[in-house]
């Protein structure tokens, strides 16, 4: 998976791939953003969603006060991406879908 294609999208702060227990496999973040924190958060949310909703693969978009958080569970691990709140969420979602299909 090419994280490059996602990080290039305007207002995307970073993207990464984490293991189920929250360790970073790969990540590209702009300076000042801690990929490990995001990885850990993504793993925790995915774990909770899977347990609660009995899903095989969890997928969520979470809007926080400061940013928007994309989480997708893939075969390779937990994919996550962070973007600014005023970003084009729809466009980013499409790009993520395409990148993950590849």
């Amino acid at each position: 998976m090419k994280l490059n294609s996602i990080v290039k999208i305007p207002k995307v702060l970073g993207a990464g791939l984490a293991s189920d227990d929250g360790f970073i496999i790969d990540a590209q973040f702009t300076v000042g953003y801690d990929a490990e924190k995001f990885g850990a958060t993504a793993a925790r949310v995915v774990s909770r969603i899977k347990k609660s909703l009995e899903l095989e693969r969890a997928s969520a978009i979470l809007y926080t006060q400061k940013s928007v958080f994309f989480i997708r569970e893939t075969e390779d691990g937990i994919f996550f991406a962070i973007c600014q709140k005023d970003a084009n969420i729809g466009l980013i979602k499409i790009k993520i879908d395409k990148a993950l299909k590849k």
Partner: peptide
Amino acid sequence: DADESFKFLQKDSLERGIIEKA
């Protein structure tokens, strides 16, 4: 749980979310 994670790790709080199921 997600809200707690955001608060703890990023000093942020959850406003809304979309959970996609099949």
